[in-house]
Simulated scan of single mutants.
Amino acid sequence: MRKLLLALAAASVIAMPVKAQDITVAITAIVEHPALDAARDGVKAALADAGYKDGENIKFLYESAQGNPGTAAQIARQFVGEEPTVIVPISTPSAQAVVAATRDIPVVFTAVTDPVGAQLVKDLKKPGGNVTGLSDMSPVADHIALIKEITPNVKTIGFVYNTAEANSTSTLAAMKVEAEKAGITIVESVATKSSEVQGATRGLIGRVDAIYIPTDNTIVSALEAAVGVAEEAKIPLYSGDTDSVARGALASVSFNYFDVGRQTGEIVARILKGEAPGDIEVKVASGTDLVVNKKAAEKMGVTFSDDLVKRAKKVIE
């Protein structure tokens, strides 16, 4: 009976609206790079639109794990000890750390490719408990189509990733399915830390016709190292996120991560207004933008068609 009463009490705390002066939203990311930073800023923007103004009626905390899963776990425990109103982990490793650290504080994850595979929730439609959020499952079918459009003779694509990131292994599985349909072979190359990205990329030269960088936090944090190898070898390098195109990748069709953050912030606002996280369906990010980089194309020996450039939401000159 005592356990039942405690469970009911915890559920009522999660579902109750929160007084404005008591609101604290703790945000953490596995690493700092443009896509994850944009998601963080989008969360804050959506909450501002919902009436929660930073420094007025809401307080934000932010910590980056600097690419270290051990640090992510420490940050999660630290945040739980500070008892914020909601915790927003950005990326799969940070979400796993936070979900493991609390069953009471509402958690709204974002930029997580496969929430079920990462064992954050058991069901997307009915997550239950204290966890919900937003998935950014990459539109890999669109990526394969884009790669074939720009480099029509492609037969092999190099996939650089960190095997420890559940989001990347899920993307790899989906990529292989779509590549097989197109008659393309995926060649894997692993980097377990940012300092290994250059070597992992270089190991693909002479073996593949193009290189693909997924939304892998380890690889994206050292994207410029991979881009440098691709430019030197005159081989096209594509990315799973559009923010990486501005950093030297050739092209991508993907989410605007500021919008991903905004969609996440809207979920946080629903919780602040009284909804229980476990009753909120896990959403899949909506919206895809085509972004191309003309300067990268020149360096990698690629020519964009006029039609492709016209279709692009943004063109990096």
Rank of each mutant, 00 (worst) to 15 (best):
A10G: 03
K59W: 02
K313C: 00
A164F: 04
Y52L: 14
T156N: 10
E188F: 10
P93R: 09
E266N: 13
S170T: 12
K310C: 08
K273Q: 14
M137Q: 11
E196K: 10
P106V: 03
K3M: 11
S194E: 13
A174H: 00
A7L: 07
V245G: 01
A210I: 03
N217I: 14
T303Y: 01
V177T: 15
S194R: 11
G67N: 09
E275I: 03
Y212R: 01
A15Y: 05
D22N: 14
L308G: 06
I58R: 05
G183H: 00
D307Q: 12
Q66A: 15
K193Q: 15
L237S: 01
V253N: 08
P127A: 03
T71V: 12
A200S: 13
L290I: 03
L290P: 03
K299I: 00
V291R: 03
I90Y: 07
P139N: 13
T110R: 00
Y62Q: 08
P34Y: 01
L5V: 08
G67E: 05
D279V: 08
M1P: 12
M1V: 13
A9Q: 14
I144M: 12
S168P: 07
N130A: 13
D114I: 03
F109I: 06
K122I: 04
V190W: 06
V220F: 04
A10I: 13
R207E: 04
D136T: 13
T85E: 09
A10Y: 02
V187W: 10
D209F: 08
E266A: 15
N162A: 15
V107Y: 03
G278Q: 07
V292N: 00
K53T: 14
G199S: 15
A210K: 03
D136H: 02
E232N: 11
K59G: 09
K59D: 08
V208D: 04
A72T: 04
F159N: 04
I87N: 10
